[in-house]
C-alpha cells in the first residue's frame, strides 16, 4: 500500500521518462519539443504535489480554517511555467528557421544535407 500512496511520484516519473524518451528517440524536431514539454511538465507536477498538506485547503485566508496547503511551490512553478513557455516558443521558432533553411524538420535528413557539404 505504501507504494500506491506515493502515486503522485509514479505519475511524475512516468511522465518524465516518457518525455525524455520522446526527446531522445524521435527524429522530428517538433516532436522533440513536445517531449521536452512533457519532461518539464512532469517536474511542475512534482513541485505542485509537493505543496499539498494533508487536510489543508487552498491558501486563502478564511474564518475557521487553520490548515492550508503550502503555496510557495505553486508560485515557484508559475515562474517555471513562464520559462517553459519561452523555451517552447524559442524552440519552435528555431524549428521554423531550420525548415526554411533545410526544407525539412527531420533530424536524419538534416544530417544528410550537412554531410554532403
Amino acid at each position: 500500500m505504501e507504494l500506491l500512496g506515493l502515486y503522485n511520484y509514479w505519475i511524475v516519473v512516468f511522465l518524465m521518462m516518457a518525455g525524455f524518451y520522446v526527446v531522445i528517440a524521435r527524429g522530428n524536431l517538433v516532436k522533440k519539443i513536445v517531449g521536452l514539454n512533457l519532461f518539464q511538465t512532469s517536474v511542475f507536477i512534482l513541485y505542485i504535489s509537493m505543496g499539498k498538506v494533508e487536510g489543508g485547503t487552498a491558501p486563502i485566508v478564511e474564518k475557521g480554517i487553520t490548515v492550508y496547503s503550502n503555496p510557495l511551490p505553486h508560485v515557484l512553478i508559475l515562474t517555471a511555467i513562464v520559462v517553459g513557455v519561452a523555451t517552447t516558443a524559442l524552440g519552435l521558432a528555431l524549428v521554423v528557421r531550420i525548415k526554411e533553411a533545410y526544407g525539412t524538420v527531420e533530424e536524419d535528413e538534416i544530417h544528410r544535407q550537412d554531410e554532403s557539404l
Binding site: 525524455f20 521536452l36 518539464q40 524552440g91 528555431l94 533553411a101
Partner: peptide
Amino acid sequence: RALTASYQYLVMGTI
C-alpha cells in the same frame, strides 16, 4: 548549421 547547433543546445540545455 548555427540553427541546428542552437536547437541542439536548446534541447540539452533545457534538460
